[in-house]
Structures are given as structure tokens and as C-alpha cells.
């Protein structure tokens, strides 16, 4: 068996509304090995969540549609499977944790019921065995008095506890891949630390790969081996976490790193913000999507879309000026006068 668990090639997802089409994801490619974690980071609207939900073919259709690309999981092309075959994969081999733990559980069923549902769909266990397994899962995710909690409803749980229940449901069938879409964004920092710790512990015990979607670079540093930086539906940089932290290449990644408030930023200096806001994806973008906000943009950036190239070993980036032969000088936070370039 090969070591590659998931390969995504040139994934394209579009949303139609009326006469306009929004290109939410525009050619995303990556691959993930077993027991490896990949982080996808980007601002809202960059297409990170759409990429994640496409992996499970959960994009509502209409209006959304996967218009191109391949998603190969083990040796199956997920985009070619029938709905029935897909259902066997969802929740069993690939499962997902969503952002908001208060809306992703059904309020009218007990949490025990919801875990058992997932177990009974995919495993040949009788009612009693399924219940025991569910209680075991609840204990595994650190819910005290699991037997008593089994018959409680979601509203009796706090946000962090609900997210633990979600993790219990997601891991109940020992999935090979877990997609976590902003799993800690809705939680307090103290609880976020608990949940991230729990995910790391469980990963070791059941050998799952994780696709972690987040806008918080801190979460990536904590949990991931590889990362993708997304902007306006495109991957602008990819590589190992260590490499991107030590040696980021794309100007957008620079902007993202610089606008983080860290301990080393003195409150006397101004923060390095990226000027402007992301482009409207329902309009056709020619050239580099980041050009309008990029301090290094030149004529070519507005005309030609940069390709992903391997600028260093295993480290890809899509920028006209970041190649093996030529490098930009990173000017931290310096914003140049871009009034001469009209977008």
C-alpha cells in the first residue's frame, strides 16, 4: 500500500447565482500522506472551507458545483463514485468536524443517539454493542460521567463539551482522514488549548490524518506538518510548516505573518496591515489575484496569472518574482505607493 492517502488535483468549485458565477476554488492541488496533518490557512472567502467540504462532496448542488479536478482517496476517485458508495465513505473513512458546535448537533436527539447513529450506519454492531462503543468514545474524548451524559441533549453541554461530542462522532468509526473546519474558532482560548491537545492525543492513538482548516496561524503551528496558504480561491504557497515559517516566499504569506500580533510586536509601533480587501470572486480576475494588494506588483502581475513553481525543495509558490533564479527582498510591512498601478 502506498503512503499517499489523499491526492487533490486541480480542484475547481463554482457557485452560480443568477447570471454570475463565483469561482470559489480555482485549481487547488495537494497531497497528504498517512498520519500526516495538513493545514489550510487563509482569510474568509479564500475558499478553504469550500475545498474541505468538496473532499466529502458536501457542497450544496445547486448552487455549488465541482467543475473540475480529481480527488483521489487511497485508490478511489471520489468524484466518480456513486452516491451510495460515497455514503459508505462519509463518516466512516473520512469524517468531518465543523466550526460551530452549537449548530452541528441535532437539538432534538440525545448525544448518545447521535453517536450510535454513526456507529450503526457503518459497523455491524447490535444496539447494545453500539451503545457501549459510544460510551467508550465519550470517555475517550474526556467527557466525565460518560454513561450519564449519554442520554443528555446537546443544550445541556457547554461549547467545548459539544465540540468533544462532535469529535467523538467523527472518530467513532476510526476514520483514516479527519477534516476539521475551524474546530476551535468558536471556543475560548483555554478550551481551544484543551481541544487541540485532545486531537493530537487521539491522532496518535488511532492513526488518523487531519486536514485542518483555520484562519489562525497559531493553530497551524500547533498541529500541522504541511500547510497551504490560500488566497481568493488559489493556493499561493505550499510546503512544510517549518519551511514556510522559516522561509516564507509569497508576498501574501509575508503580509499574513506580519499582521499577526505577537509578543515581539511592541505596542509603540504600528501593526503591519495588508491594505485593501480580497477581490470579488464573481468577477473575472486576470493576472495574480493578490496583485491589487501586493506591494511588489508590477505590470506583468496584472496580465499573467503566475503558476505554482517549486522555488525551493518541496516548497511551492505562485509568484512571478519568486523563482529559483530570482528572489524578492522581504520588506517587512512596508507598503509602497501603488497609485500608479490601476487594477
Amino acid at each position: 500500500m502506498s503512503d499517499t492517502l489523499l491526492t487533490v488535483e486541480n480542484l475547481e468549485v463554482q457557485f452560480r447565482s443568477g447570471s454570475s458565477t463565483t469561482k470559489a476554488v480555482n485549481g487547488v492541488s495537494f497531497s497528504l500522506n498517512r498520519k500526516e496533518n495538513i493545514g489550510i490557512v487563509g482569510e474568509s472567502g479564500s475558499g478553504k472551507s469550500v475545498t474541505a467540504t468538496s473532499l466529502l462532496r458536501l457542497i450544496p448542488n445547486p448552487p455549488g458545483k465541482i467543475t473540475g479536478g480529481r480527488i483521489v482517496f487511497e485508490d478511489k476517485d471520489l468524484l466518480r463514485l456513486s452516491d451510495k458508495e460515497m455514503r459508505k465513505i462519509r463518516g466512516n473513512e473520512i469524517s468531518m468536524i465543523f466550526q460551530d458546535p452549537s449548530t452541528s448537533l441535532n437539538p432534538v436527539y440525545t448525544i448518545g443517539n447521535q453517536i450510535v447513529e454513526s456507529i450503526k450506519t457503518h459497523q455491524h454492531l447490535n444496539k447494545k454493542e453500539a451503545k457501549e462503543k459510544a460510551i467508550h468514545m465519550l470517555e475517550l474524548v474526556g467527557i466525565p460521567e460518560a454513561r450519564k451524559r449519554f442520554s443528555m441533549y446537546p443544550h445541556e453541554f457547554s461549547g467545548g463539551m459539544r465540540q468533544r461530542v462532535m469529535i467523538a462522532i467523527a472518530l467513532a468509526c476510526n476514520p483514516k482522514l479527519l477534516i476539521a473546519d475551524e474546530p476551535t474558532t468558536a471556543l475560548d482560548v483555554t478550551v481551544q488549548a484543551q481541544i487541540l491537545n485532545l486531537m493530537k492525543d487521539l491522532q496518535h492513538s488511532i492513526d488518523t490524518s487531519i486536514v485542518m482548516i483555520t484562519h489562525d496561524l497559531g493553530v497551524i503551528w500547533e498541529t500541522c506538518d504541511k500547510m497551504l496558504v490560500m488566497y481568493a480561491g488559489n493556493v499561493v504557497e505550499s510546503g512544510t510548516v517549518q519551511e514556510i515559517y522559516d522561509n516564507p516566499l509569497h508576498p501574501y504569506t509575508w503580509g499574513l505573518l506580519d499582521s499577526q500580533i505577537t509578543e515581539s510586536v511592541s505596542s509603540e509601533e504600528e501593526l503591519n496591515a495588508i491594505p485593501g480587501s480580497p477581490p470579488d470572486l464573481s468577477l473575472d480576475i486576470t493576472g495574480c489575484p493578490f496583485a491589487a494588494r501586493c506591494p511588489f506588483a508590477e505590470e506583468i502581475c496584472l496580465k499573467k496569472t503566475p503558476e505554482m513553481i517549486e522555488a525551493a525543495e518541496g516548497h511551492f509558490t505562485a509568484c512571478h518574482f519568486q523563482t529559483k533564479e530570482h528572489r524578492l527582498d522581504r520588506k517587512e510591512g512596508k507598503v509602497h505607493d501603488r497609485s500608479n498601478i490601476k487594477s
Binding site: 489562525d216 497559531g218 510548516v241 505577537t262
Partner: peptide
């Protein structure tokens, strides 16, 4: 102290000594 220690890492190399609180508020 616990709040401060639960701030996510600032770099992949950082080693954090965490005080992880039990339970929630």
C-alpha cells in the same frame, strides 16, 4: 497564568509549558 499559557504558539519551534485548565467556566 492559564489564560496566557493557552495563547497558541507563535512559531512551530516554540515549546510551551501549558497550564491546561480542566472543564469550562
Amino acid at each position: 497564568r492559564a489564560l496566557l499559557s493557552s495563547i497558541p504558539k507563535e512559531s512551530p519551534n516554540e515549546i510551551k509549558e501549558r497550564i491546561i485548565l480542566k472543564g469550562s467556566v
